[in-house]
């Protein structure tokens, strides 16, 4: 019988447990998981020597069929994507899911039109939270501190709350913290745990600045070679995968927060002794306020340049679920 062979670009190898325990096994057992006669040749992007900012272009070239899409990096070529993950929009999982659902078809349409790829699902690495080596009791305490950030939106946000944003690569952050090049740094608690950040910090503030959303997408060429019932099966399988990841991500998040402060249950990481700073309503307010004050206007300006309806669509779809006018 005719088996189909797909090639997939995965998350970089070192991105953690979601890649290792959910994504890679799914693609390696693709036929079984989808019930389709399809085998997937799965390659983490860093093993290809392709930069993650180039994913959409490589997909358009047609060499690959499925991609585990890195949203922030690829908003270079398609700023519409970043509407998924504006700083302050999703401080928790529940809101993150709502945003992802509300915005799904906007991205799907845009990706199909611009890059001939179809969106299959959206999933989160999880809340990106704050780690500091100086005592903090609330978010506003980062005023005057140097904070490691990883992109433009976050940099603007840190400026807004009075900190100095310092772009440092993930690999260099541990050292930068230990030597005081930065006082605080932002990432997911699980990544922080495995990279040993708690060795060089004292406080964690479990307030999600961004949900670090990512997506799965398939080239239209591959999609269209499937029969309608096969397409439905494929979509169902990816819905299953992404929903599994949503749950898993939340478990990991809670578990890693526990590990970092030395509490049980802690099954996925090493135990440390960080002080966990309780998130106050004022902090939530401050983060939520970033959407209209900083991240939306900055993003809208860039996005509307390449996609005239960009912010209009966002205001029509995502703004209502966030309770913004």
């Amino acid at each position: 019988q005719d088996r189909i062979k797909f090639k997939a670009i995965g998350q970089p190898l070192a991105t953690g447990l979601i890649q290792k325990n959910k994504e890679q096994p799914f693609f390696e057992n693709f036929a079984q998981r989808t019930g389709l006669p399809i085998d997937v040749d799965y390659k983490p992007i860093d093993t290809l020597g392709v930069k993650d900012t180039e994913q959409l272009r490589v997909m358009k070239a047609g060499l690959f069929d499925i991609v585990s899409l890195r949203v922030s990096q690829n908003s270079r070529d398609e700023p519409t994507l970043l509407g998924l993950d504006l700083v302050g929009a999703s401080p928790d999982y529940a809101t993150g899911r709502k945003v992802a659902n509300a915005y799904f078809s906007t991205i799907d349409e845009r990706l199909q039109k611009q890059f001939n790829v179809k969106l299959l699902g959206v999933w989160p690495f999880g809340p990106q939270v704050l780690f500091c080596k100086k005592p903090i009791a609330k978010l506003a305490d980062v005023k005057g501190m140097k904070v490691r950030v990883y992109d433009q939106n976050l940099a603007k946000f840190i400026e807004m709350v009075g900190g100095t944003p310092v772009p440092v690569s993930f690999a260099d952050t541990h050292q930068s913290l230990s030597l005081g090049v930065v006082d605080c740094a932002i990432t997911g608690p699980s990544s922080a745990n495995s990279a040993g950040w708690p060795e060089v910090t004292t406080h964690q503030l479990p307030l999600g600045f961004q949900m670090a959303l990512n997506g799965y997408a398939i080239s239209l060429k591959a999609w269209n070679q499937l029969k309608p019932d096969q397409q439905a099966k494929l979509k169902t399988a990816f819905d299953g995968l992404t929903s599994e990841i949503w749950t898993y991500s939340e478990e990991l998040f809670q578990d890693a927060l526990n590990c970092n402060q030395g509490k049980d249950p802690c099954t996925t990481g090493k135990k440390f002794k960080l002080t966990n700073v309780a998130v106050s309503p004022a902090d939530l307010e401050l983060v939520r306020g970033a959407v209209t004050k900083v991240s939306l206007p900055v993003w809208a300006e860039v996005c509307d340049k390449s996609n005239a309806d960009c912010s209009k669509k966002w205001n029509a779809t995502v703004a209502p679920v966030l309770g913004l006018k």
Binding site: R57, K60, R76, D77, Q114, D151, Q152, P167, K305, S306
Partner: peptide
């Protein structure tokens, strides 16, 4: 050609 078509803008400050 791609950069012009997408109006690509660096994801940086």
């Amino acid at each position: 050609a791609d950069t012009m078509a997408y109006g690509s803008t660096a994801q940086t400050p």
